[in-house]
């Protein structure tokens, strides 16, 4: 179990991590999601005691990291920077880490076998592919047979086979009752791996919820209507108690609309329809919407720790009132763009 309490990290006048409090529990894969620069890596470095928090603290099975005499028995981590000396043979790399924590040398061989690197044990990692480097990093994390595993963007730059392997491994580790905490900036990746989800944006907690609940709350559906008479159609829909909003290419979008009912309505009034379709927002869109808000309203505090924030009265990003589906009239900013500008490189 990893417990974060009011964890905060300030670089100069930038808050990279801003009062994060949540608990990562054993037995499930917990996804740690946020755009690039949201503060995921900084948070993970603070968990490992590498960076000193400005405020707040982290507990590993109830202890501070510095109190762990031989931490590799409790927590193993793969950080974004692989942290491997290119000239030190894979076996020796793991051996020096093992020795420092009193882990027997045979574990080195076992860990290499677990990640499928036994044939390159005597090779120097500078010749390794990205995937092999990741595997070596994971072998290091597994060395001490720890109850907690933490992976920072483990699938970055991997081929599909490697991605599948890491995904399966993480789920297996969780099934064994371990705590698995894994970061990603891709919702689609998390949706396939994680059962629990912690979302942050600009260092703030945006959501701490189960994956199924997140999906239920965030996968919005709407009906898309295109007609040569948009004005008339809009009036008809409004009269029927629905709330149409203008969408792309002159279409109307009706939140939580019922396509057959809208079709019947149009037919009854003799309105020609060019398109009538139910649109399901992807999880990726839901995630982007969630984090885009944190960009636009970074001054607004997130709601409870267990619910994603809702846009506040009068500050909705799009015309049409707070109930309008954001992201319909205008796509949210492209990935990371806005973040990079605002946040600089750290985090």
């Amino acid at each position: 179990m990893i417990e974060l309490r009011d964890l905060t990290k300030r670089y100069g006048d930038k808050l990279a991590v801003d009062g994060l409090s949540f608990t990562v529990r054993p037995g499930t894969v917990t996804g740690f999601l946020g755009p690039n620069g949201a503060g995921k890596s900084t948070t993970m470095r603070m968990v490992l005691g590498l960076d000193e928090p400005t405020r707040g603290d982290v507990r590993i099975e109830g202890k501070r990291y510095a109190e762990l005499r031989e931490p590799l028995h409790s927590i193993g981590a793969l950080l974004e920077a692989k942290g491997v000396h290119g000239g030190r043979r894979a076996h020796d790399h793991l051996l020096c880490l093992a020795q420092s924590n009193g882990i027997p040398e045979r574990r080195v061989g076992e860990a290499l076998e677990m990640v499928g690197l036994q044939d390159v044990a005597r090779k120097r990692p500078k010749g390794f592919s990205l995937g092999m480097g990741q595997r070596l990093g994971i072998a290091a994390a597994l060395l001490g047979d720890p109850r907690i595993l933490m992976f920072d963007e483990p699938v970055n730059g991997l081929d599909p086979e490697g991605i599948h392997w890491i995904r399966t491994l993480m789920q297996q580790l969780a099934r064994e009752g371990r705590t698995v905490f894994v970061s990603s900036h891709l919702m689609s990746e998390m949706a396939q791996t994680a059962e629990h989800l912690v979302v942050i944006g600009q260092g703030k907690l945006l959501a701490d919820t189960s994956m199924s609940q997140f999906i239920a709350e965030n996968s919005r559906t709407h009906v898309r209507v295109r007609t040569p008479e948009p004005e008339r159609m809009r009036d008809l829909l409004t009269e029927a108690g629905l709330r149409p909003v203008p969408g792309a290419e002159g279409a109307l979008e009706v939140d939580d609309g019922d396509a057959p009912r809208i079709g019947e309505l149009a037919a009854a009034h003799g309105v020609v329809l060019h398109e009538l379709s139910t649109q399901r927002a992807s999880l990726e869109e839901a995630f982007m919407r969630l984090t885009a808000q944190s960009v636009e309203y970074h001054a607004a505090a997130p709601g409870g720790t267990h619910a994603p924030p809702v846009p506040q009265e009068g500050t909705a990003p799009h015309p049409g009132g707070p109930q309008s589906p954001p992201g319909a009239a205008q796509p949210p900013p492209a990935w990371g763009e806005d973040w990079q500008d605002r946040k600089g490189r750290r985090g």
């Binding site: 490992l48 590498l50 510095a66 590799l72 491997v84 290091a140």
Partner: peptide, 18 residues
């Protein structure tokens, strides 16, 4: 410097926080 330039320092200090 090899500890720092390779990022090994993070593994080293995660293994030996003292």
């Amino acid at each position: 410097s090899a500890e720092y330039s390779t990022g090994m320092i993070r593994n080293s200090l995660a293994a030996v926080p003292q």
